[in-house]
């Protein structure tokens, strides 16, 4: 039952879940953000159209996104081992999480940047801004609220993926729910992990929304 050992296990589970989620979100953005920017910049009506680059990236993003997460996690075990030296545990889990989430993040970033009024980019061009300045100071800066909103979606989605990691040997709340709630029929533990996961998602969504509306100067 809920003794001190179990509580410690749950606390550890929360820690591992947050570690995987936030770590994977960070690296997904390291890869996905530039990818999203390149997709927008190289598109047909982008600021530096380059259709071959756009098409190749577009296909890669679509392909990666169509592989179910669990299949991907198992499939790339050799690659995970190459990078982290192991295929089990929270750190190892971050690798498939990033691979699955980065293309998703790229799409989120792409759609945020596409929302931007083309006229603003044209105005920056008329002032003599370089493409780099336009990306940095106009596109990313003006899309900040939308990007933050996308990041909230990304982080909660990655949290959901991370819980699936319990099946392939990662830690976290997902693993606890799986090992104790499912295999040992401890429905109370199952319930607790579910409640904890719901709370974490709520907190993330809530603070994401707050950050977004605080950053948005269009609605004052």
């Amino acid at each position: 039952m809920l003794d001190s050992q179990m509580i410690w296990l749950l606390v550890q589970g929360i820690g591992e879940t947050l570690y995987m989620t936030l770590g994977a979100t960070l690296f997904s953005y390291v890869i996905g953000l530039p990818l999203g920017v390149i997709l927008v910049v190289c598109a047909k009506d982008g600021i530096k159209p380059c259709l071959p680059v756009y098409r190749v990236l577009d296909v890669i993003v679509n392909l990666t996104r169509s592989i179910p997460f669990l299949v991907l996690a198992v499939w790339i075990i050799p690659f995970t081992r190459l990078i982290t030296g192991t295929s089990i545990g929270s750190t190892a889990m971050i690798v498939p999480l990033v691979l699955a989430a980065a293309p998703f993040v790229a799409r989120l970033v792409e759609s945020s940047l596409l929302e931007l009024d083309k006229g603003i980019i044209e105005a920056a061009q008329s002032m003599g801004a370089s493409n780099f300045q336009i990306i940095w100071k106009v596109m990313l800066s003006e899309s900040k609220p939308s990007l933050l909103n996308g990041a909230t979606i990304a982080v909660t989605t990655i949290l959901g993926y991370s819980a699936m990691g319990g099946f392939v040997g990662a830690g976290g709340l997902g693993a606890i729910a799986y090992n104790y709630g499912y295999y040992r029929y401890q429905t109370d533990i199952m319930l607790i992990t579910v409640i904890l996961l719901v709370i974490i998602v709520q907190v993330m969504q809530g603070s994401g929304n707050k950050l977004t509306s605080h950053a948005d100067k269009r609605k004052i």
């Binding site: 006229g119 603003i120 044209e122 105005a123 061009q125 008329s126 002032m127 003599g128 370089s130 269009r218």
Partner: peptide
């Protein structure tokens, strides 16, 4: 780009940076 600095432009939809 340098030349464009000597030519300002204004637009129908203003095109200000909203943030």
């Amino acid at each position: 780009r340098k030349m464009r600095r000597s030519m300002g432009m204004i637009f129908q939809q203003f095109n200000l940076l909203m943030q």
